[in-house]
Design a protein around this nucleic acid. Structure first.
Length: 480
RNA sequence: GGCCCUAUGGUCAAGUGGUUAAGACAUCGCCCUUUCACGGCGGUAACCCGAGUUCGAACCUCGGUAGGGUCACCA
């Protein structure tokens, strides 16, 4: 049984997963799901030097949070394993030798020094095919003598290798521009690209989806498929995601990394939704889409050929959309720990605060700053009371705060409606506009110019006792 | 340097020979409003340059320019 579509995501466990890597995986996932195929996870851990402890677990965690379930992987055998490259090392040598037999590769005994001398004026080394046509007997003799060797690809001469990329169209490269590259290193291990070809074929990958860094070397790999007599897969190369006009996102600097965004309080779905749109656009131009909608709408035509710059501001907006789309209850659950952390164990109504925060934050980590007034209250700048349009200045504020004190002092029913009624009535009695009193009262009880809600809401949240204490403090401050 | 690729507002992008060149983010202004936010309305802002093909080019061709990728016994 062969699946019509099998795609794979092959990250290396060398650190964080930035959204560029994730997006490549996402497209492979969407493509497989869209076509009812299989999505496979393969861990490319041959680079032991750069290996990072815990990175494999991070990959599992990320895919799980991102909602990208895989059908086969290291922890989910589908009969094409093992799915971890270091566990497949014995396979490659065998295939390299087979390729020699088939005439698609040859043994090379050139040493480092000889290769060094091949550098041209640009410092580019191109192998001169020195060992390409060694007599068979000589090869066997040197092999038997235990001479170190590598196996190189025997690139056919005088041909043009071309293929049809699903996003870039026809790509063709003259074989004269393709080097007889090393397939199997002198330590018996495969080069990365050879391992890839072998793995992709053995795992039955039908559509290779990866970054454009492989766009121009793919003709070379296709020649290997050809030499083996294997069917070539289809290719979908994806343009890079940049951090600015000239630099790609980099793992090394921890740019735009998925887990950081999660830690900052971006909903995972929002991140996924945003990156899906970074380099792809659905036919109907929708923006906010669920995973299911992405799967249904995903199509190759919508993929862009040019690099895109990652824009956190837009992702932030997307995050806000997801947060606002939550029900009160969902938002309460999502924001709860952020709020609890912000109020430091004080007795405030978390539910009430959640409802205040709901339309006011794009990402959850904005919460502490917005709730700072609950913990911090002290001497503040009286200029905050000056507001032209509201016709308020420090003199008006003095009066307004007193009116608020009188209005609220005798109030026992500490609810929004009751507070509003009292303040409105007392303002009218004092010959002031309700808005003026509320404006001053809000500042008087928060000490802040900008607050997450109006005077009434702030009063309810603070509670009567704290509210009165702050009003008194402010009144005294104003009198000085 | 050789080879491969790309080029629409600040950003993401629609557009596939005839359009007033969409939409979103950001930005600015207005409305709503007890500040902020939400919501609503509106504004500023783009086809890299030069030839060619064509009645007509953002779209096709060529050449520049700019940017990216790749040329390892790294992955």
């Amino acid at each position: 049984m062969t699946d019509i579509v099998r795609t794979r995501f092959a990250p290396s466990p060398t650190g964080f997963m930035h959204i560029g890597n994730l997006r490549t995986g996402l497209y492979a996932f969407l493509f497989a799901r869209k076509h009812g195929g299989k999505f496979i996870l393969r861990i490319e851990d041959t680079d032991q030097e750069r290996k990072v402890e815990g990175a494999v677990e991070m990959i599992y965690r990320t895919l799980q949070k991102a909602g990208m379930s895989y059908d086969e992987g290291p922890d989910k055998d589908g009969g094409y394993g093992p799915y971890v490259q270091t566990m497949r090392m014995d396979i490659y040598k065998q295939y390299a030798e087979k390729l020699v037999e088939l005439g698609g590769a040859y043994y090379c005994f050139c040493d480092k020094e000889r290769l060094e001398r091949l550098g041209d004026e640009n410092g580019v080394h191109t192998y001169d095919k020195h060992c390409r046509n060694l007599p068979k007997e000589e090869v066997e003799r040197r092999l038997a003598a235990g001479e170190p060797y590598v196996i190189r690809q025997k690139v056919p001469e005088g041909v043009v290798s071309e293929y049809e990329d699903m996003v870039f169209g026809k790509i063709s490269v003259d074989s004269a521009d393709i080097e007889d590259g090393v397939l199997l290193k002198s330590d018996g291990l495969p080069t990365y690209n050879f391992a890839n070809v072998i793995d992709d074929h053995l795992m039955g990958i039908t559509h290779v989806i990866r970054g454009t860094e492989y766009l121009s070397s793919t003709p070379k790999y296709n020649l290997i498929y050809d030499a083996f007599g294997w069917e070539r897969p289809k290719y979908m190369h994806l343009p890079p995601i940049m951090k600015d006009a000239t630099r790609k996102l980099s793992k090394r600097y921890g740019d735009a990394n998925f887990e950081d965004f999660i830690a900052k309080g971006y909903p995972a779905e929002a991140i996924v939704n945003y990156i899906a749109l970074l380099g792809w656009c659905p036919k109907d131009n929708r923006e906010k889409m669920s995973m299911q909608e992405l799967i249904e709408a995903f199509d190759t035509d919508g993929i862009s050929k040019s690099a895109s710059i990652f824009d956190e501001a837009k992702m932030r907006w997307m995050s806000g959309e997801y947060l606002k789309a939550m029900s009160e209850e969902e938002f309460f659950e999502a924001s709860r720990e952020w709020i609890e952390r912000a109020i430091e164990g004080k007795e405030f109504d978390v539910k009430e605060l959640a409802s205040l925060m709901h339309t006011r934050v794009d990402i959850l980590s904005e919460i502490p700053e917005k709730l700072k007034f609950l913990n911090e209250f002290g001497v503040y700048d009286l200029n905050m009371y000056v507001h032209q349009k509201m016709k308020v200045d420090v003199e008006v504020a003095k009066k307004a705060v007193k009116v608020a004190i009188c209005a609220l002092d005798g109030l026992d029913d500490w609810t929004a409606d009751a507070i509003k009624q009292r303040v409105t009535d007392f303002a009218a009695e004092a010959g002031m506009k309700a808005g003026q009193v509320m404006f001053c009262m809000r500042i008087a009880i928060t000490g802040a110019q900008v607050t997450p809600g109006g005077a009434i809401e702030m009063a309810v949240v603070l509670g009567k006792r704290e509210c009165m204490r702050r009003l008194t403090f402010s009144s005294e401050l104003l009198e000085k």
